[in-house]
Design a protein around this nucleic acid. Structure first.
Lengths: 345, 345
DNA sequence: CTTTGTAAAGCAAACGGTTCCATGAAGGAG
DNA sequence: CTCCTTCATGGAACCGTTTGCTTTACAAAG
């Protein structure tokens, strides 16, 4: 019932090899034959069997996205979907299909990756997280499988990765506040085991240092990428004797928490506290007031990751590529939450 | 380099067929041989080649999600990601891999679907939209390919689909407001070509009728699933001589727009206008005030879609299944935005 | 007129499995 | 002791492509 290359060959009165060569644009096929075969393929509605093709070519023209386990947070969802959109768009432009996989735990994840790669179902994978230490990465490296990490890992220096310059981003965010005239600036960080938290904190430090501003330890609090963290940080800061006049938050969700808290206490933003945060999720411009945020180009991150991966699949020799770390530019979007110059005390 | 079934066979001193049988748990293999072979497979790190397997079995153990073209809206992202999570989770439990595909336009989409299905790369697809009329659905039906629609189509009666009872959901939402004592209730709908808009509007109508309440045409406005629509609807409603005291909005994003507008005009929610909307996105509980919303079980929708599809792949004969339309239950989450009983006039 | 070169196409062997059919050994029945 | 089953396994064909090696036909060269 399914029409194969042989059926086409028979009807065209040529051999299967010839049909195959027509398909792949082999040079030594006469124009006449080529045309004839193409017409017949069209007529018969021939579609190549990808499995057979893959079997002999040892190539699948598909890649796999590995999602971290529990992507249940709001931000995670927004972030991942945006990333996936970038990956899918670019992949399909390059003629690759995208699989998406996720495991309940690290062991399952490893099993899945191993099955997919060793079982030749995909040609490479995109990892969407940056744990410090990772069995999956170890497996991929030792097996010589093509993969790229979205995010960065300081343990593995030489692997392909796509990321933002988070230090610089935080530097820019902080400097923006400084340039508005703020001198007492707080920082709400994320989980300390996440590299992104660390990097952004460092950028903040650099900017403060760079401007010769005082840095108090109580102006830096740790939290998560969640509203609650912002809410708590806010109450902590506002009760400080010499409280900050501005805040850099590691994620927009944190800002929302801060905003909510300030609102309840009848404080005004940005007059009582100016805010800048990261990731520029679509909601950032919809809150009241809209939040200044660093846009990190999530879609672009995914797009590039796919590009880099597919390139590395297609010519693995090019290890000598200029660099292994691709940096996606960020940009500061200034909105109302930071548009206020405090009177110098 | 890759270890195949033949390598295992040789090392175990048996034939490839025997190894294959061990793998598939064939009954007529002695326990002794089975154990021996399994040990050797483990030793050699054997992983079956999925392509070879698929080639002969004509089955891929993977399905494909077809995303509609422009999933760029905030809500869409949250919605789709949640759906995808449900699908991926259930699929992986059933041992299926998930591909994700999307086309720039309907033609591309059809090409992709055709290539994937006819090319035997996937066993079935999940469609994430419900256009009224669709070349893709036509293709799938005429080709006899397994597929399920998330959403519903009134043109195709007999196809597998997973959806909410949106009429009932809107009925419930409206009744909730009515039971709080509201009598003048407005409705902000979505694009009229979307079935979900129509269904929800109908549910609203039913509830109003059912309670013998007046329905004015100017209390029903059309918009999109976006903040702006809510904003506009709000200004329209609030300028009406005999304005509604409550509102049912077709989507939470619309509510956010309404909220923003009311906030700017110093109206109070729910005192000046009570609101209920649909989808219960994570933000609904985070706005001020938190929005009452109908939770439609998005994750569950995806989970079920995958289940239904895989079932239909595995026993296509069971067309006589009890029903083709699976309804995911919804539930009303009452929050502050509707917790106010207006004084009857 | 034979030799050599070249373009176009065919043959057959993979790729890594699965599965139908055949085979041999062992055990039970007659 | 022979015949028939039953059980465990081996052999070989096949799934739909690709591709290296031949073959064929013809033209140009010697």
């Amino acid at each position: 019932m399914t029409v194969t290359i042989k059926d086409v060959a028979k009807k065209a009165g040529v051999s299967p090899s010839t049909v195959s060569r027509v398909l792949s644009g082999h040079p030594r096929i006469s124009l006449e034959t080529s045309r004839k075969v193409k017409v017949i393929m069209e007529e018969m509605g021939y579609t190549p069997n990808m499995m057979a093709k893959s079997l002999v070519s040892k190539t699948t023209n598909s890649i796999c996205i590995i999602l971290p386990k529990p992507a249940e947070e709001l931000f995670s969802n927004l972030f991942f979907m945006e990333l996936i959109r970038g990956i899918v768009t670019q992949s399909s432009r390059s003629g690759y299909d995208v699989l998406i996989s996720s495991g309940a735990n690290e062991k399952e994840e490893l099993e899945a990756v191993s099955r997919l790669l060793k079982g030749r179902r995909v040609d490479g994978v995109i990892l969407l997280y940056s744990r410090k230490d990772d069995a999956v990465i170890d497996f991929l490296e030792s097996g010589g499988y093509p993969f790229v990490l979205v995010g960065r890992s300081d343990r593995y220096e030489d692997i392909l990765s796509v990321d933002n310059d988070n230090v610089m981003a935080a530097f820019d965010a902080t400097n923006h506040l400084i340039s508005m005239g703020h001198e007492r600036i707080g920082f709400v960080s994320g989980p300390p085991n996440l590299i992104v938290s660390r990097d952004r904190l460092e950028g903040y430090r650099k900017a403060m240092l760079n401007s010769g501003l005082e840095m108090r330890t109580e102006w830096i609090v740790e939290g998560e990428f969640l509203q609650d963290s912002g809410y708590r940080a806010m109450s902590f800061f506002m009760n400080l004797p010499n409280r900050p006049t501005a805040l850099v938050a590691v994620d927009d969700m944190v800002s929302f928490g801060v905003l909510r808290g300030l609102n309840e206490l009848k404080y005004k933003v940005p007059e009582d506290l100016a805010i800048v945060s990261f990731n520029n999720i679509p909601l950032s411009e919809l809150s009241s007031p809209p939040i200044s945020s660093i846009d990190i180009g999530i879609y672009h991150l995914g797009y590039t990751a796919s590009q880099v991966l597919i390139q590395s699949i297609q010519k693995p020799d090019n290890d000598a590529g200029y660099t292994n770390r691709f940096v996606i530019p960020h940009r500061l979007i200034v909105r109302e939450s930071s548009m206020y110059a405090p009177g110098k005390k």
